[in-house]
C-alpha cells in the first residue's frame, strides 16, 4: 500500500510539473502538449472507439505472432539441444539472426509479402523465434545430467524424461527467453506498424505514425503512453505469476 502511495505521488507530481512548465511557456506547447491535453485526446479516442479498435488489432497481431513464435521456437530449441548436428548448423543461424534487430526484417517482409497482415505476422515471428529457441537450448544444456539419471532409475524414459524432467528443469531459462521474445515481438510489431501502411487493420503503430504526419503531438504522446501501458500490463499478467512461481520453488532471489 505504501509503495502504491509513493508511486502515485511521484507520477502526480511529475504530471503537475510538466503541466506547469508548459502553461508558463518554459516548454513549447507545439512540441510538448500538457498532460491535460494528452488525457483529453485519450478520452476522445476511447469514446470514438479508435483506441480500443487499434489496441485490439495490435494485440491480435502480437498474440498470434508470439504464439506462433513459441510453437516454432520451443521445439526447435529442444531439438537443437538434443542433436549436435543442429547445434552446429541451425544453432549458428539462430545465433546470427537473434543479433539482427527485428526491425531489419521489415524491408524484407514488405518485399516478400507486400503490405499485408502476413508481413506483420512474419516480422513478429522473426522477433520471437530466435530468442525463445536459444533460451530453450541454453536451458536444456544447463540441466544437471544427474536429474535425468535419477529419473531413469525411477523408470522414466525417452519422452517422459523430456517432458517431466528436462523441460521443467530448464523452465527458468525458458521463461526468461519467452520474456525476451515477448519484448522483441512487441518492439518489432510497433516498428512494422509504423513502417507498413496496410488497409486490413489500423493498429497502435499506425495511430502513432499518423499522429506524426498530422503533427498531433497529443496523439503521439497519448499513444506512446498506451503502448507503455500495454507492455507493463503484459508483463504483470503473463510473466509475473510464472516468475513468482519460479522464485518460490527454486528459491532464487527476487529482483
Amino acid at each position: 500500500m505504501k509503495r502504491w502511495l509513493s508511486a502515485a505521488a511521484f507520477f502526480t507530481i511529475l504530471a503537475a510539473v510538466w503541466e506547469i512548465l508548459v502553461q508558463i511557456g518554459v516548454w513549447p506547447h507545439v512540441l510538448i502538449p500538457p498532460p491535460s491535453e494528452v488525457v483529453r485526446y485519450l478520452v476522445r479516442a476511447v469514446s470514438d472507439h479508435t483506441l480500443l479498435d487499434s489496441s485490439h488489432i495490435t494485440l491480435r497481431r502480437l498474440v498470434l505472432g508470439y504464439s506462433a513464435g513459441l510453437v516454432i521456437g520451443l521445439p526447435l530449441g529442444l531439438l537443437n539441444a538434443r542433436f549436435k548436428v543442429l547445434q552446429d548448423t541451425l544453432g549458428l543461424v539462430a545465433l546470427g539472426l537473434q543479433t539482427l534487430p527485428s526491425v531489419c526484417w521489415v524491408p524484407l517482409a514488405l518485399l516478400w509479402f507486400g503490405q499485408t497482415e502476413h508481413a506483420m505476422f512474419f516480422i513478429v515471428i522473426m522477433g520471437t523465434v530466435w530468442s525463445v529457441m536459444l533460451a530453450t537450448d541454453t536451458g536444456v544444456r544447463n540441466v544437471p545430467p544427474l536429474y535425468a539419471r535419477a529419473a531413469q532409475t525411477m523408470g522414466s524414459r525417452g519422452l517422459h524424461t523430456w517432458l517431466k524432467v528436462i523441460l521443467p528443469a530448464s523452465l527458468p531459462f525458458i521463461v526468461s527467453g519467452m520474456k525476451q521474445g515477448w519484448a522483441f515481438a512487441w518492439r518489432s510489431l510497433m516498428a512494422a506498424e509504423i513502417y507498413v501502411t496496410i488497409l486490413t487493420g489500423f493498429g497502435l503503430g499506425h495511430l502513432l505514425h499518423y499522429g506524426r504526419e498530422l503533427h498531433a503531438m497529443d496523439q503521439v504522446i497519448g499513444i506512446m503512453l498506451v503502448i507503455i501501458g500495454i507492455g507493463l500490463l503484459a508483463d504483470k499478467i503473463l510473466f509475473s505469476p510464472i516468475e513468482r512461481f519460479l522464485h518460490r520453488r527454486w528459491g532464487t532471489a527476487r529482483h
Partner: peptide, 26 residues
C-alpha cells in the same frame, strides 16, 4: 536402470520444480 534397484546420489538430485511430496510421488 530399473525400479527394483533405486539409487541415492551424493547430491540429493531432488527436482527443484516439485515440492517434497511431488519428488516422492515422481
Amino acid at each position: 536402470p530399473g525400479r527394483d534397484r533405486m539409487v541415492m546420489f551424493q547430491e540429493s538430485a531432488l527436482f527443484p520444480w516439485l515440492d517434497v511430496m511431488g519428488n516422492v510421488m515422481f
